[in-house]
């Protein structure tokens, strides 16, 4: 099965002013993705932008793959204009994805902003068994709330400006939870994705509480399959490629600068 394939746009829904939900139908047989894996998606028909963009998958059915993306720059603005029926080229699934926890471990899913997109497929797979901590800057930036509620996990939502849920940053909310639930510390496992400063805070909490876990990292990348060596992060064993050795790394392996 070739991971480089053509796909047809089935639907491209605008969720709000800055997020779209894109549904693609692969025209060639496509491999089943694991939670936390990603795809490189062609953003335009011309040489500008030149490179494909990496996106984590959200949901997969037998015929389609769904992506939720934030409109941030030139590439995603062009993607927002994708019309139904358009055929684009895609590479994926790429990267390693989240390793699933052993049975007795309670997963603590900690998402910041669009980090929820990468973690959603994991939450979906783990179903009722996990605690989800999800923070965003404000109410408008919160994504997938209904879907998360439907999944029936223990869900704690927070916003920096208190426009929805608890007030504060998601790392503060996680800290409060851990102080109130001392006993969970020995049997839980953290999965986290979000902006770098937040990931750094979560890493430090994990370190101080002696909790193990996994972090999904992001870096500029050109190819997505290990050739350009552009997307490295610094780890305790040197530079590692986010696209191939990641994007998911053991939380204690990352060297933050």
């Amino acid at each position: 099965m070739n991971r480089y394939f053509k796909a047809k746009v089935i639907e491209n829904l605008s969720l709000n002013s800055s997020h779209n939900l894109l549904t693609l139908e692969p025209l060639d047989p496509a491999a089943e993705p694991n939670p936390g894996q990603f795809y490189m998606i062609e953003a335009g028909d011309s040489y500008d932008p030149l490179l494909k963009r990496p996106f984590c998958w959200l949901q997969k059915t037998r015929e389609t793959i769904q992506f939720l993306f934030r409109i941030k720059g030139k590439g995603t603005s062009l993607m927002r204009a994708f019309k139904k029926g358009k055929v684009i080229s895609v590479i994926g699934p790429l990267g390693n994805g989240y390793p699933l926890p052993r049975k007795k471990r309670t997963p603590l899913i900690v998402a910041g902003g669009t980090g929820i997109i990468s973690l959603f497929s994991l939450i979906n797979k783990l179903s009722h068994n996990c605690h989800v901590f999800y923070g965003a800057r404000n109410k408008d930036e919160l994504l997938l709330l209904n879907e998360l509620e439907k999944l029936g996990n223990k869900l704690i939502v927070c916003t920096n400006d208190c426009s929805f849920g608890k007030e504060g940053m998601v790392n503060e909310v996680l800290s409060q939870f851990l102080s109130a639930n001392e006993s969970i510390k020995t049997s839980c496992l953290i999965y986290t994705c979000g902006p770098k400063p937040m990931l750094q805070e979560i890493t430090s909490i994990a370190f101080h509480e002696g909790i193990r876990g996994y972090v999904s990292m992001e870096e500029n990348m050109a190819c997505g399959f290990g050739a350009c060596q552009g997307c490295v992060v610094n780890t305790i064993s040197g530079y590692k490629k986010v696209c191939k050795e990641g994007p998911v790394f053991p939380i204690e392996d990352i060297v933050w600068t």
Partner: peptide, 15 residues
């Protein structure tokens, strides 16, 4: 070991 990241960025019609 190579250079520290970010190592690449896109530019018009190039990188």
């Amino acid at each position: 070991e190579g250079n520290p990241p970010p190592r690449i960025c896109e530019t018009p019609c190039g990188m």
